[in-house]
Amino acid sequence: MNIKLSVVDQSPVHGSHAKVEAPRLSIELAQLCDQLGYYRYWVAEHHDSVHFANPCPEILVASIASVTQNIRVGSGGVMLSHYSPLKVAECFKMMATLFPDRIDLGVGRAPGGTGLTSHALAFPHEPHHGDLYANQAHLLAGFVQGTLPDDNPYSKIKVLPDSTPTPELWMLGSSGGSAGLAGHLGYNIALARFIDPDNCHPSIFEQYAEEWDKAGHQGKANKMLAIACICAETEEEARLRAGTAVYRKLAAQLGQREDFLTPSEVQDRYRQMSASEQSAYDHILSGYTVGTADQCWQEINELAKTFSCDEIATVTVTHSHHDRMDSYRLLGSQL
């Protein structure tokens, strides 16, 4: 299988650099991935986070697209529940106009932050917590593609004087809740295995395909699987570097919030954990793709076969920016 390798970048706040540099480091990584031949580069949206430094993906998408040449650039994703579908369509159709055939618009249902940030983003109104997501996604597709029916009150709105250029539309999910909606509305689908590998099964793509066919959409339904991946020269080093991301996820489950730990600090914490906490840590690590480039590619090929998809996106979070660049460089050397 000829696999397209892509990137989902959460813009981690690396401990190796000042926090203010995190967005610029994402741009630096995107330029490297463009040179290496990665297919797609998406940036994620997070609010009120000590770990991830991108609350406004549309700005970083435009910045990255302006300094890269070939790689597709997009959002993975815009947390649509917070926003007006028209405004999101305007932003991404503008970028599709400026960077033809290179812009993706991925949307998600999750808040990407705390309940407090959801309230602040909705102010002076009340947050709807995703209850209107299906209607928002329907409107967004209509605005982007110019397909709103005549009886829709917004059908006469022109997003741009020439609305021909359009971004690719994608819907994100992690455990199948949005698969049917994505297929029904004609969105491509990105499945975030890195969030919840225990509940991320090939049947989600099957459900999506069934709804796509049932709705009578034309063309190919694109599928992407996004995985957590740490690559290094040796398996031992990769597992060590992965500790930063694994511990962050475990700490989040325990309600703890602190800056990224170094790999050695994680090992110290691990030795102090209870047996049950060590088991939880090991289980999280088992859901990651970790090892040398050959080992990672072997697992990537197995996952692509299991999920019957030809595009894998990697999410790589490390304490050091050098380690993250190194991971993508090693993995990309086999493209």
Rank of each mutant, 00 (worst) to 15 (best):
Tyr133Ser: 04
Ala137Asn: 03
Leu148Asn: 04
Asn152Gly: 01
Leu132Pro: 06
Ser163Ala: 13
Thr164Phe: 05
Pro165Arg: 08
Asp151Gln: 10
Asn152Pro: 02
Gly112Thr: 02
Asp131Gly: 03
Gln136Phe: 10
Phe143Arg: 00
Gly115Phe: 11
Lys156Arg: 12
Gly112Asn: 06
Gly142His: 10
Leu139Tyr: 01
Gly115Arg: 14
Gly146Lys: 01
Leu121Asn: 15
Met171Trp: 10
Ala137Glu: 01
Thr164Arg: 08
Gly142Arg: 10
Gln145Trp: 12
Trp170Phe: 13
Gly146Asn: 00
Leu132Tyr: 08
His138Glu: 12
Leu169Gln: 15
Ala141Glu: 06
Phe143Lys: 01
Leu140Met: 12
Ala122Ile: 14
Lys156Trp: 09
Thr117Arg: 13
Glu168Pro: 03
Met171His: 09
Ile157Trp: 00
Glu126Asp: 14
Pro153Phe: 02
Gly115Thr: 11
Val144Cys: 06
Leu172Cys: 08
Thr117Trp: 12
Leu116Asn: 11
Ser155Asp: 03
Gln136Arg: 10
Ile157Glu: 01
Leu148Ala: 01
Leu172Ser: 04
Pro161Asn: 13
Pro161Met: 07
Ser163Glu: 08
Leu139Asp: 06
Val144Gly: 04
Ala141Met: 10
Asp131Met: 02
Thr147Asp: 03
Asp162Met: 01
Pro167Cys: 11
Val144Asn: 04
Val159Leu: 07
Leu121Met: 15
Gly142Asp: 06
Tyr133Arg: 07
Asp131Gln: 06
